[in-house]
Design a protein around this nucleic acid. Sequence first.
DNA 1: AATCGTTATATTTGTATGGATATAACGAAA
DNA 2: TTTCGTTATATCCATACAAATATAACGATT
Lengths: 112, 112
Amino acid sequence: MSYKIKSRIWIESEDNVLLGEGRVHLLKAINKTGSLSKAAKSLNISYKKAWQLLDSVNKSAKKPVTINSIGGKGGGGAALTEYGKSLVKAFDEINKNCWAFLDKELQKIEVL
Amino acid sequence: MSYKIKSRIWIESEDNVLLGEGRVHLLKAINKTGSLSKAAKSLNISYKKAWQLLDSVNKSAKKPVTINSIGGKGGGGAALTEYGKSLVKAFDEINKNCWAFLDKELQKIEVL
DNA sequence: AATCGTTATATTTGTATGGATATAACGAAA
DNA sequence: TTTCGTTATATCCATACAAATATAACGATT
């Protein structure tokens, strides 16, 4: 067991990235904090980067992933839609299954 | 208008990368050209980068992956060992299998 | 010994990605 | 109508990574 196999997976729609690990982390943080700026802080990334990620997610998704509101009580906020929640869940499942699959495949290297 | 799932996989040994897609491309080019400098040119990467990649491969592998010779006829060269060839083959297999696996898993997203 | 194209390595230069900063727009509530 | 914290957006800046450049070491062949 000396080698480790690692992976990054992501989902694209016509050259835009819909989901990747960073975007999924962000969506989870939005779900937890209720705002994009708080999510960015909790992940130690800049608001700009967080906004760009979220923007690309919503632009490439078939249905809205978050509902963002400006102004009003608390200044506004961001929340996952049901679709967004199910995307996150599906991505996590795929990722976990991929890790398990690759761990098995790694034997082909260990055996050499 | 459907989604595409993409991946990058790599193999590490205690924090050094043994193999990844770039390193495998390089090893294949070395096998084809017989030299590291020619391989770098054929891949449009700098010699420095190619050398660094190959160095890290040989440093983290259990057995030599290439034999590099300096001076002599033609100035020297680089060639894959049998172990190197089998590593490349195994990595390609794992990668191909991973793609097929992920294509199936993508259904979990498409269906949402 | 002179030549050659390579491996090996250090140093300088360029660039592109993200970070920091600033500011406008917004709307519910007091 | 003022306040508040947020979303949204532009501009500037720094730093890390890659590219370009330069050069030494090497050894079979001639």
